[in-house]
Amino acid sequence: MLSEFDLEMPSDLQASLSSLPYATPLGGGTNLLVDLRARREKSKRLVWLGNIQAFREIKINAQQVSIGGGTTLSDILHSPAMAEAAPSLFNAARVFGGQMVRNRATVAGNICSGSPAADTVPPLLSLDATICLTNAEGCRSVPLDQFYTGFKTNLRRQDELITGLSWLVPNSNTANLFYKLARRKGDAISVVGVAVTVTREGDRCTHARIALGSVGPTVFRAKDAEAILAGGLLSEKLINDAAQKAMEQSKPIDDLRASANYRRHSVRVLTRRLITQAWHSLPEKTAHT
């Protein structure tokens, strides 16, 4: 049963920021309310962000995507340009929770929940997303890659909100994919999540990102594996080596959903598969625009 708490519902950002130092931000509540009910979370004062004007705005132009701190997973799915502007994120949204959860759950809340299984984080890492942390004084930009400091710990200060995220739209020589491996196809916690970005110029891979979920204390980029690919002439061997490296960089645990061994195995399979798939989806001749 939920314990008692005060709920503020400000309609502008400044008002919410001014109560923040003493209160816990409430997005869709799909983590926070669960935690309150299980008494893992003891906050007595919540600030609901759902009333803030324009907090769910999504802006996509030819170069850049930016989304507001209140953007929900359903917003991502309903944004017509998102499938092109962030294929991995779009695909993650499709396999995220169930319809009701997607309608409430926010991307910012997913990031702040800090779960290693947070499904939007591998895609956002693979897109080099930057988050905007705002307090009453102003806003600072932090690359998502630097945000996490450990299991469920991050750089966000008590008085800050994630007010937005942004990343560059992948060009036509870049493929960006995500796969969620879970024990069920709908509404399940990831056993392994893998997002990859590959840019192709002829036979060469000029840019690679491999982000892994549920195989460490935080979602993380397998940078050594990326390094094997980036700049190299891509071959089956190179892909296998990168997949092997991604597996070696994983530090999964055994839990009810799967063993650490199976997770490691799956990281290798999925990394190899996604990079191969991404590579073959790209034109051999570089399109110059």
């Binding site: 396999v95 169930g98 024990r183 069920r184 196809k185 709908g186 509404d187 399940a188 916690i189």
Partner: peptide, 16 residues
């Protein structure tokens, strides 16, 4: 019982 909730106890969904 270490799986007393529907986050661990997985009934097929419409997607399955």
């Amino acid at each position: 019982l270490v799986s007393p909730s529907f986050s661990e106890y997985l009934i097929p969904t419409s997607m399955d």
